[in-house]
Computed example of a mutant assay.
Amino acid sequence: MNPLTIDQVPKLRRGFRLQWEPAQDCHVLLYPEGMIKLNDSAGAILKQVNGDHSVGQIIASLSAQFPDVPGLDEDILAFMEVANAQFWIELR
Protein backbone atom coordinates (compact mmCIF):
# COMPACT_ATOMS: atom_id res chain seq x y z
CA MET A 1 0.00 0.00 0.00
CA ASN A 2 1.34 3.44 -0.92
CA PRO A 3 1.77 6.06 1.79
CA LEU A 4 -1.05 8.55 2.23
CA THR A 5 -0.45 12.07 0.93
CA ILE A 6 -2.34 15.30 1.63
CA ASP A 7 -3.10 15.68 -2.08
CA GLN A 8 -5.16 12.50 -2.22
CA VAL A 9 -8.96 12.74 -2.23
CA PRO A 10 -10.76 10.22 -0.01
CA LYS A 11 -14.28 8.96 -0.50
CA LEU A 12 -16.32 6.35 1.28
CA ARG A 13 -15.95 2.96 -0.32
CA ARG A 14 -18.92 1.73 -2.33
CA GLY A 15 -21.50 0.14 -0.05
CA PHE A 16 -20.53 2.25 2.99
CA ARG A 17 -22.70 5.04 4.38
CA LEU A 18 -22.06 7.46 7.24
CA GLN A 19 -25.04 8.48 9.34
CA TRP A 20 -25.98 9.75 12.77
CA GLU A 21 -27.56 6.98 14.81
CA PRO A 22 -29.76 8.40 17.59
CA ALA A 23 -30.04 5.03 19.34
CA GLN A 24 -26.24 4.82 19.56
CA ASP A 25 -25.87 8.61 20.17
CA CYS A 26 -23.01 8.72 17.68
CA HIS A 27 -22.11 8.55 14.01
CA VAL A 28 -21.93 5.08 12.54
CA LEU A 29 -20.53 3.70 9.34
CA LEU A 30 -23.01 1.29 7.80
CA TYR A 31 -22.08 -1.42 5.32
CA PRO A 32 -23.88 -4.53 4.05
CA GLU A 33 -22.42 -6.85 6.70
CA GLY A 34 -22.86 -4.56 9.69
CA MET A 35 -22.13 -1.29 11.42
CA ILE A 36 -19.07 0.44 12.83
CA LYS A 37 -19.71 2.69 15.82
CA LEU A 38 -17.49 5.79 15.54
CA ASN A 39 -16.14 8.08 18.22
CA ASP A 40 -16.67 11.84 17.89
CA SER A 41 -13.30 12.43 16.20
CA ALA A 42 -13.80 9.71 13.60
CA GLY A 43 -17.31 10.98 12.87
CA ALA A 44 -16.03 14.56 12.42
CA ILE A 45 -13.34 13.38 10.00
CA LEU A 46 -15.61 11.12 7.96
CA LYS A 47 -18.25 13.87 7.68
CA GLN A 48 -15.61 15.76 5.63
CA VAL A 49 -14.96 12.79 3.32
CA ASN A 50 -17.08 13.43 0.23
CA GLY A 51 -14.89 12.58 -2.76
CA ASP A 52 -14.26 16.27 -3.49
CA HIS A 53 -11.99 17.45 -0.66
CA SER A 54 -8.36 16.40 -0.45
CA VAL A 55 -6.82 15.15 2.77
CA GLY A 56 -5.08 18.53 3.05
CA GLN A 57 -8.38 20.40 2.70
CA ILE A 58 -9.96 18.18 5.35
CA ILE A 59 -7.05 18.89 7.70
CA ALA A 60 -7.39 22.65 7.07
CA SER A 61 -11.14 22.59 7.65
CA LEU A 62 -10.94 20.63 10.90
CA SER A 63 -7.96 22.67 12.11
CA ALA A 64 -10.05 25.81 11.65
CA GLN A 65 -12.94 24.24 13.59
CA PHE A 66 -10.67 22.99 16.40
CA PRO A 67 -7.73 25.45 16.54
CA ASP A 68 -6.66 24.54 20.08
CA VAL A 69 -6.14 20.82 19.42
CA PRO A 70 -2.40 20.08 19.18
CA GLY A 71 -1.28 17.48 16.65
CA LEU A 72 -4.65 17.41 14.88
CA ASP A 73 -3.07 17.02 11.44
CA GLU A 74 -1.13 13.91 12.53
CA ASP A 75 -4.27 12.45 14.12
CA ILE A 76 -6.27 12.98 10.92
CA LEU A 77 -3.54 11.41 8.79
CA ALA A 78 -3.33 8.42 11.15
CA PHE A 79 -7.11 7.95 11.05
CA MET A 80 -7.15 8.17 7.24
CA GLU A 81 -4.45 5.50 7.06
CA VAL A 82 -6.47 3.19 9.32
CA ALA A 83 -9.71 3.89 7.42
CA ASN A 84 -7.93 3.10 4.15
CA ALA A 85 -6.36 -0.08 5.55
CA GLN A 86 -9.77 -1.19 6.86
CA PHE A 87 -11.25 -0.50 3.38
CA TRP A 88 -13.73 2.09 4.73
CA ILE A 89 -12.44 4.69 2.27
CA GLU A 90 -10.64 4.72 -1.03
CA LEU A 91 -8.13 7.33 -2.12
CA ARG A 92 -7.54 8.83 -5.52
Score class of each variant (00 low, 15 high):
F16V: 05
N2F: 13
E21M: 11
A60W: 00
A44I: 02
P3Y: 15
P32G: 07
D52V: 10
L4F: 01
N2I: 11
A42P: 02
F87E: 15
E33W: 09
S63C: 11
W20T: 06
L12P: 00
L29K: 04
C26L: 08
H27T: 06
P10Y: 06
R17I: 08
Q48D: 09
S63Q: 11
G34C: 02
E90G: 01
Q86I: 00
G71F: 04
P3F: 15
A44G: 07
E74A: 15
R13A: 12
L72T: 02
Q19V: 13
M1N: 12
L38I: 01
N39S: 10
V69G: 03
I6H: 04
V82F: 10
E81T: 09
L62N: 00
D73Y: 03
R17A: 11
I6L: 11
P32D: 08
D40H: 12
P22E: 12
M80F: 10
Q24H: 14
D25M: 13
N39T: 06
R13L: 12
A64G: 07
M1T: 12
D25Q: 14
A64R: 09
G15K: 05
D75H: 11
I89E: 05
N2G: 13
D52L: 13
L38H: 02
F16K: 04
W88S: 00
N50I: 07
S54A: 02
L46N: 03
I58V: 05
D73H: 08
